[in-house]
Design a protein around this nucleic acid. Structure first.
Lengths: 370, 370
DNA sequence: TTCAATAAGCAACCTGCCTAACAAATGGAG
DNA sequence: CTCCATTTGTTAGGCAGGTTGCTTATTGAA
């Protein structure tokens, strides 16, 4: 019941809740009483218009609690604050500090603290912090390995610093997984239960959702599509593991090719611009990248047959690339996969972290209330 | 509670059931009363040995009901009869009749009827028939498409004939999916929650289980690994769709190669025998097949990172091939996938069908009892 | 033979939900 | 403006499914 109330963007009436969760009005009556007593529900007006007595509207008050989401990405650290329902209250981001985990976590806790203090949630109890991390999570959900794109090459505990700084429950997940959950919650995957988010940025990785649940895999390596056979030989999960189909190797390849009009491109934006302008090496390079991405998409489709594949990331966000990769993938798979562009862009992971925080806080609240 | 009782291979006591399902003894007491009244439980003795009063042992009596499982495969039609707990009572198989769905379904219903009549379950109510079918199931779970390896090229309703012949609930599923569930229930995947079964027979296909649930995919095409990019160009899902890495194309390739000592092999067994004997073209062909299978395994690992990949089927069952493919796959993926041989062999699909029948019957019984 | 330990069966009670009934608002028909 | 159909808010009582606590019946071992 509380769960349903937390899901509502607008205030709702008791009769609505009754029919929505299949309970009788008296049951909802007492449930709302309990929630009001705990400060988790709040009458905010009357609904009129229809014949009959007008119903009281209820919502979860902002003072009931705050949620924090932190995304530690390769290029930006993002913080989002919301109320318990996940409604955005404040958002901040900064370029990621270097090098390594300790510096970045310091930056992130600072940014979170300042955002919190400057917001109207400063005095409200913070229920949960969800952190989106760039690497593979250990089994206890605290330590992150292979976070090479923030220059953290050893396993690093991202949990303790946040827990120590704020003394609230902290939950972590991988940022591709969270991007997938973000797209499902507030993005283009809203109606989907089985889909993949393929992020092509510095490297390439996928977050896979099956029947609403993130696939993690036996080694936490589900979605590590950088290891698909078409990309060739054995590789260790190391600093350069993800690069073959990612932006870094794309630019590296660019430098080693002849025929540029002037300097080779140094950013993917530049590369795409020059490809659009028809510059030969750029066109060829982009076409090869499209083929690689199409191959990843086709492989995912052949194995799990998702309802859609969402492309995102610094490279994957490009509309022409998406269209071309989708076209090439269609030629490989008899049932045409639906390839779509991210709806949340580089905010997908924070939004997913908000969702994770909301889920986690909800579970904690459920232990007390219905 | 009933579910738990059905899962037990040996008779169990009420205190055991109480602690196993987290209920109090009085609750179990009344539940067992209900079940006894309906003929679904049965005292079969006393448990002694420990100090204290000896507990009564209960089990589901054989007369409570029968389950039937039918596997319609490319080479054999198999029938298994069990009691409600899934304990095997009778098993029969025959080479598959040709051509096409109607003939085979006639054969299967006949075989089921004769097996039933000859068994000691003849007078017991049949609760459910589960049918393992060689093709893609339609959304309503009745019609099967792409059943090319039984020479049924049009969609064909496998449900109605069984329902009409026996007047009991009939449930269908794809035979690779059921092989996966069979391996999980009674085979080598007993401890696993996320794994893939790769069947290499005439063609190649995979059944994928994620957290205990079969992945089906948006088009029912999850596990259609014949479409993985390394196998090349676009192909329609048609009569020859699955062949490139399967036994049929293997033998086809054999005929088109030079260097055989005498006739080229006409069966995969012969091919493997001659490869083991060191005959050059056979060795080369088997090595190529191992590489293809390794590539499939590696692709599955890169996308879903299963706890294990189970190999089965006329080609996939070969121990040397499994060892070699596992070795090649390990060279492609940084976290070594566990590649194992099927524990149930060509019976996996029927066993999986028994499991499906048991699940389905259980659901129906649950509607009546706890 | 006695006793500690355990199972079996019974009674009373608790919780979460329901239905039934009634009181309180409300918009619209007259 | 009044009345009424309609819908919400609230209370009371009941039922189902579980609980705990007690008594009685068996059992193995001291």
């Amino acid at each position: 019941m509380l769960g349903l109330l937390l899901d509502q963007e607008e205030p709702v009436t008791r009769p609505f809740l009754a029919s929505a969760c299949g309970l009788s009005r008296p049951t909802i009556f007492t449930a709302i009483q309990q929630l009001e007593k705990r400060g988790l529900a709040h009458a905010v007006g009357q609904q009129s218009g229809a014949p009959g007595r007008s119903a009281t509207l209820y919502e979860v008050p902002e003072e009931a609690g705050a949620l924090a989401a932190v995304d530690i990405g390769g290029s930006n650290v993002r913080v989002v604050l919301t109320d318990l329902r996940g409604t955005l209250v404040a958002e901040q981001h900064q370029p990621t500090a270097r090098p390594g985990g300790p510096a970045i976590v310091g930056q992130a806790t600072e940014l979170l603290r300042s955002t919190l203090l400057a917001s109207r949630l400063a005095a409200v109890p913070l229920h949960t912090i969800a952190v989106s991390v760039p690497g593979v999570l250990s089994h206890d959900g605290r330590t992150v390995s292979y976070a090479s794109n923030i220059d953290q090459f050893e396993p690093f505990d991202f949990h303790t610093p946040f827990a120590d700084a704020f003394h609230v429950p902290v939950v972590l997940d991988n940022n591709v997984n969270l991007a997938a959950m973000g797209e499902r919650w507030r993005g283009v995957a809203r109606e989907l239960s089985t889909f993949a988010v393929v992020a092509v940025g510095a490297g390439i990785g996928a977050g896979i959702v099956h029947e609403g649940r993130v696939m993690r895999g036996a080694h936490g390596a589900a979605g590590e599509v950088a290891f698909l056979p078409p990309f060739g030989k054995r590789r260790k999960v190391d600093a350069r593991a993800h690069d073959e189909a990612g932006g870094l190797s794309l630019l590296h390849d660019a430098r080693s090719r002849p025929g540029w009009a002037g300097e080779p491109p140094t950013t993917v934006e530049d590369l795409f611009r020059r490809a659009a302008a028809g510059e030969k090496p750029a066109v060829a390079l982009v076409e090869e990248e499209c083929a690689r991405i199409a191959s990843v998409v086709a492989s995912i489709c052949a194995v799990i047959d998702p309802e859609a594949v969402v492309l995102t990331g610094g490279v994957g966000d490009n509309d022409r690339l998406i269209a071309r990769a989708a076209h090439l993938a269609e030629a490989m798979i008899p049932f045409p996969p639906s390839v779509i562009r991210s709806g949340l862009g580089d905010r997908a992971s924070v939004i997913g972290a908000v969702y994770l925080a909301a889920q986690s806080a909800r579970l904690a609240l459920m232990e007390v209330t219905g």
